[in-house]
Design a binder for these strands. Structure first.
Length: 848
RNA sequence: GCGAAAGUGGCGGAAUUGGCAGACGCGCCAGACUUAGGAUCUGGUACCGAAAGGUGUGGGGGUUCGAGUCCCCCCUUUCGCACCA
């Protein structure tokens, strides 16, 4: 230990020591209880940003805490290394995506090590390496076998001039990003995973995690899954034996249906119009709707529609109503068609007004007369009525034949039942969640292990042929086509079934596939026979704490839940949910120069801060301490240069104090003196020490890291106020200081591990790593106050305080309060109506 | 538009069970040490007031002996969803 604190030297020293002593490597056969602390793995863009630093600082604080508490802590890291930026770099800069990616990983690994995050680096994984994506392919085959992976036609953005697929970004504004041609929607054969099969479970199992996940994430997942309970009804078609099916959550309004509105691309409509004069018009209309949708802005589009001339028959009343097509009905939700009830649905109302469709009220508000035989209604006629807007609430049915007079709640069940018994409908549940399309016409991803054979058709690659290796390189000139299609030695293969010459699928998988199961691979990262052995994940998973940004609240966190359920189904696992506790940390923001706006750090806004510069200027410890202190973990964090200076100032003060006491503490007798040997001040210091241990231990369980740091500062302030000179301190005083300082240094380790190690060594623990030390234990007896200071209020206003013993009774407190001089003065001449005593906390005297 | 969450000093925030509002830090002010200070140390710092004292947690109302905390209305901000039948 040097007299002065030099972060750079200290940090280098301990990073080396940790590596040499393999301090953070964990093994499966360790008798201690396990703890799996996981942070979302980064995309190797080339540089760590402050969001990463915050994410990993939070995780590392928890990992340190748990380790000091005696847990066997798995704390791994890896790279989400497939994805577009690498391919863009290849297209633009002519570099190989693999080289680009490896270089970035190399650099970012160095940054993480300079931050001193306590990872088990022996378990590092990277998605772009064949020993990882082989298992993506393995899972794909398993899903294919079970019908979870399937192929279907699906619309993509298509540039008709270049005859190529474009991503959403490449077709923004509805035109091709290169040639400016208007983009079309075109159907392409693509692979999908049946997430919808698991919709019910994804919803149901939220019960298992709702105490550990933020409510807002669960809510977004619930909305994403979008379970909706209602009924389906088949409307007959006039002069045809076909039926058109609709889904509704409001079957009670069916007597108010004045049209059927179908999605423009509804196949039944096209079929029914076969040969009709309207056939082309409707096809034209469908094309326009598809185009508008591709160009969709944030704004809701104006509703447009057209009458198809087809008539449908309402099975409840036999009425014929027109069938329309419109842009506001979506083919891929519900049944792709709705019954239009303008009086009781806002969208239908708007549509009906525009096209002068009849508006018929069939639900009346329930009034105070609801118990009378004749329900009150706003309009007692079955003709089109004037309504200022749709009435969408539940109410009482009117103009609804035999259901008239019933409440919506009752009619919903009865009418669904009626439809079912008469064979034209029944109960139905629909979901908003769609199957997950994973085909990407891109190079830098895991190849889809499917072969197209002229004899056998679509054939899965054989397991023993995995991995299907991604070629070294391809033509990246950016034709928009999957670059793999141009690599002959990749495309041309033999059929795994009949050995005939065959062609490979040239698409790669969505990168969300890689991140759906990566943290299971950490448990068994070098397994060559399986993605992981069930025994290792049985030991380590589920993840105890997962930490990351809330931009992944739906996609990644739904997909990984889905993947877990699939892995359970193929008996790799035996639980439903992969993550017990989830923390979504807040963003790191900085002032945008020339404005007073705080925005997320970004290159384009020029308000980014380079972690390396921070480390150079202040040290990793100060940067990490500041980040964790400045705001609660889930809040936005506003960057502040002076804040980080405060952090290094604090570390330096603690460091200086350790330096001043080091000789005295190294030589001090460890034996605790008898209680009566401690002075009043020494007892107060010990009380603060034990109170602090208790508070911080509790805070860590809730990840209240900012208040933990504040408590450490308070303890330090108490130590500073304990003005005893090291050389003249009594044995008891030195003991109290040692107890406080050791607790302080150990509990500082999760926030500033390098400096803490250095101080720990300086305090005489040569050769013993702080990283294998033990978290201090709070002694409740020592933490207990020796006397209480009880506030005394008069009519709820603080007037005085009285000193009392911790065992004081209510009566004693009351007496003490009433006899207090200041209190007597303020209640003089008034009648005491009541005295409220909150045991050992407060007295309130009510006077008149 | 719909839904949710949140509004506390100059700033980040604390008060986690209805019981002393403003812990801790930043900033600022004063002082010490210094050739010097954007270093370090000491003290102060919600507001009004000379003081006694009074006021104070977005605004208004309510419940309670007692409200930052619970209830109702309003305002503002942030986030999410946005044709989901």
């Amino acid at each position: 230990m040097d007299e002065k604190y030099f972060p750079e030297a200290v940090e280098k020293k301990w990073q080396r020591r940790w590596e040499e002593s393999r301090a953070f490597e964990v093994s499966d056969d360790d008798p201690r209880p396990k703890f799996y602390c996981l942070e979302m793995l980064p995309y190797p863009s080339g540089f760590l940003h402050m969001g990463h630093v915050r994410n990993y600082s939070i995780g590392d604080a928890l990992a340190w805490y748990k380790r000091l508490q005696g847990f066997n802590v798995l704390h791994p890291i890896g790279w989400d290394s497939f994805g577009q930026p690498a391919e863009q770099a290849a297209i633009k800069g002519g570099v190989n995506p693999r080289d680009w990616t490896e270089r970035n990983i190399e650099h970012m690994r160095g940054q993480l090590k300079r931050l001193g995050i306590s990872y088990d680096w022996t378990r590092e994984i990277a998605a772009h390496r064949a020993d990882y994506y082989k298992w993506d392919q393995w899972f794909f085959l398993k899903m294919f076998e079970r019908g979870i992976a399937y192929k279907k036609l699906s619309p993509v953005n298509w540039c008709p001039k270049e005859e190529t697929v474009l991503s959403n970004e490449q077709s923004s504004g509805g035109v091709c990003w290169r040639c400016g041609t208007r983009v079309e929607k075109r159907d392409l054969e693509q692979w999908f995973l049946r997430t919808t099969n698991y919709a019910e479970q994804l919803l149901e199992h939220m019960k298992e995690i709702d105490s550990g996940w933020p409510e807002k994430v669960l809510k977004r997942q619930r909305d994403w899954i979008g379970r909706s309970v209602g009924a389906y009804i088949d409307f007959g078609i006039k002069a045809s034996d076909k039926k058109v099916r609709v889904f509704t959550t409001r079957i009670d309004t069916i007597f108010g249906a004045t049209a059927i509105v179908a999605a423009a691309e509804h196949p039944l409509i096209a079929e029914l119009l076969q040969g009709s004069s309207l056939q082309d018009d409707v096809a034209q209309f469908a094309k326009k709707v598809a185009l508008d949708r591709a160009n969709a802005s944030d704004e809701e589009e104006e509703k447009i529609g057209m009458n198809t001339g087809i008539l449908a028959i309402n099975p409840f009343n036999g009425e014929s109503i027109p069938v329309w097509v419109a842009n506001y009905v979506l083919m891929d939700y519900g049944a792709g068609a709705v019954m239009s009830v303008p009086a009781h649905d806002e969208r239908d109302f708007e549509f009906a007004q525009k096209y002068s469709l009849p508006i018929r009220q069939v639900i009346a508000p329930v009034t105070h007369r609801q118990n009378s035989a004749e329900p009150h209604s706003l309009a007692g006629t079955d003709q089109s009525v004037d309504m200022p807007h749709a009435f969408v609430d539940y109410g009482v049915l009117i103009n609804s034949g035999e259901w008239g007079g019933k409440l919506s709640e009752v009619a919903l069940a009865e009418m669904t039942n009626f439809a079912e018994t008469h064979g034209f409908g029944g109960p139905a549940v629909t979901y908003r969640i769609r199957d997950w399309g994973i085909s990407r016409q891109r190079f830098w991803g895991a190849p889809i292990p499917i072969v197209y054979c002229p004899n056998c058709g679509t054939v899965p690659e054989a397991y023993e042929n995995l991995p299907v290796n991604l070629p070294e390189s391809a033509d990246f000139s950016g034709t928009g086509q999957s670059p793999l299609a141009s690599v002959a030695e990749f495309v041309n293969t033999t059929c795994p079934k009949c050995q005939a010459p065959a062609r490979r699928d040239t698409d790669t998988m969505d990168t969300f596939v890689d991140s759906s199961w990566y943290f299971f691979r950490y448990c068994d990262p070098r397994n060559e026979a399986l993605p992981f052995s069930p025994s290792t994940t049985k030991l380590w998973t589920p993840v105890d704490q997962y930490i990351g940004g809330d931009e992944h609240a739906v996609m990644h966190l739904i997909y990984t839940r889905f993947w877990t359920k699939f892995m359970r189904d193929i008996e790799l696992l035996s639980f439903d949910e992969p993550v017990k506790r989830l923390l979504t940390q807040g963003m790191v923001t900085n002032l945008v120069e020339g404005t007073d706006e705080w925005k997320a750090m970004s290159k384009s806004l020029g308000n980014g801060v380079d972690p390396d510069e921070m480390i150079r200027a202040f040290g990793a410890d100060a940067a990490r301490l500041f980040i964790l202190f400045a705001a609660p973990v889930e809040n936005e964090l506003r960057w502040s240069e002076s804040g980080i200076e405060g952090a290094i100032r604090f570390i330096r003060r603690v460091y200086t104090m350790v330096w001043q006491w080091r000789e005295r503490l190294a030589g001090a007798d460890i034996e605790a003196p008898a209680l009566e040997e401690f002075s009043l001040e020494a007892r107060a210091l010990r009380r603060k020490t034990h109170q602090t241990i208790s508070k911080i231990t509790n805070d860590f369980e809730h990840l209240y890291l900012n208040t933990s740091v504040a408590a450490l500062m308070e303890l330090f302030n108490s130590l500073s106020d304990f003005r005893v000179d090291p050389s003249s301190a009594s044995h008891a005083e030195a003991f109290a200081v040692r107890e406080a300082l050791e607790a302080l240094v150990i509990m500082l380790a999760p926030f500033a591990p390098h400096a803490s190690e250095e101080m720990w060594e300086g305090m005489g623990h040569e050769g013993g790593l702080l990283s294998s030390a033990k978290w201090p234990q709070a002694d409740p007896d020592l933490a207990r106050k020796e006397e209480l200071e009880i506030p005394v209020q008069v009519n709820g206003k603080l007037r005085s305080r009285v000193i009392a013993s911790p065992e004081v009774s209510d009566d004693e407190l009351r007496a003490a309060a009433l006899s207090d001089e200041k209190i007597q003065a303020s209640i003089e001449g008034r009648e005491v109506a009541k005295v409220i005593v909150v045991p050992k906390r407060l007295v309130n005297i009510v006077v008149r």
